[in-house]
């Protein structure tokens, strides 16, 4: 028995906006990265650098640092008061800078198309014929008396069943996972911080006499 037409798999998938499904999250991640980079740069310029000069250059904001060195006397005993030195260090060098960015985007798309048809037919018939007779007779003399009784039984059964089953279902699951983490600093920023760090020039403000 021909059933209903099954779903066309190709037709089911051809209408999917795959470009949007995959490209949409990636585009959003790229925009998020640009926003984060811009925000971080703006923050660093505003908090770790002086306002721009007339020529547009910016100077780093310096903080005072104290360097202490223990002094050992000639007899091997340490002096109570260590030598103290003051130096300036760019504020930028003590911030735990890391580029924040979307470092992982995964798009999971799962679609299931189900189509099934089943037909089940069952016919059964049964016929039962039975006869049952019962006889009894009695006769009398004098006034006539005759009694006759009997019975007949007949049974017939017919059963028929026809089952058909048709099922179709579409299900789709779309997961987009975006994770933002810390990336290593760009080489340019690392070079700037290294240059500042290497240019540390301590200025002694209190000399110990030994």
């Amino acid at each position: 028995m021909p059933g209903p037409a099954l779903l066309s798999m190709a037709q089911q998938f051809s209408g999917l906006p795959m470009k949007s499904l995959i490209g949409g999250p990636l585009k959003a991640a790229a925009e998020a990265n640009a926003l984060m980079a811009h925000t971080q740069t703006e923050f660093l310029l505003n908090t770790c650098f002086q306002p721009p000069a007339q020529d547009g250059t910016r100077s780093p904001i310096m903080i005072d640092m104290i360097i202490e060195r223990a002094i050992i006397n000639a007899d091997g005993t340490p002096q109570e008061k260590p030598a103290q030195t003051k130096m300036n260090l760019p504020l930028l060098t003590i911030l735990p800078l890391n580029s924040l960015a979307v470092d992982d985007v995964s798009v999971d798309f799962e679609m299931e198309v189900k189509s099934s048809f089943s037909n089940e037919k069952e016919n059964s018939s049964s016929t039962e014929v039975g006869a049952e007779a019962k006889f009894s007779a009695s006769a009398g003399i004098g006034p006539f008396s005759v009694e006759i009784s009997g019975s007949v039984k007949s049974t017939s059964k017919t059963a028929s069943s026809d089952k058909s089953h048709y099922e179709k279902s579409n299900s789709a699951k779309y997961n987009v996972h975006v994770h933002a983490g810390q990336l290593p600093l760009p080489q340019g920023v690392t070079t700037i911080i290294d240059a500042y760090s290497q240019a540390i020039q301590p200025i002694q403000i209190e000399a110990e006499k030994s």
């Binding site: 908090t47 770790c48 904001i61 903080i63 005072d64 640092m65 104290i66 360097i67 202490e68 060195r69 223990a70 003051k86 504020l91 003590i94 911030l95």
Partner: peptide, 17 residues
């Protein structure tokens, strides 16, 4: 035997940033 710390005069600024 050298140790470094932020000067008390710059501590608040560094902490805020």
């Amino acid at each position: 035997n050298t140790s470094i710390s932020i000067s008390p005069t710059s501590l608040n600024q560094a902490k805020d940033v």
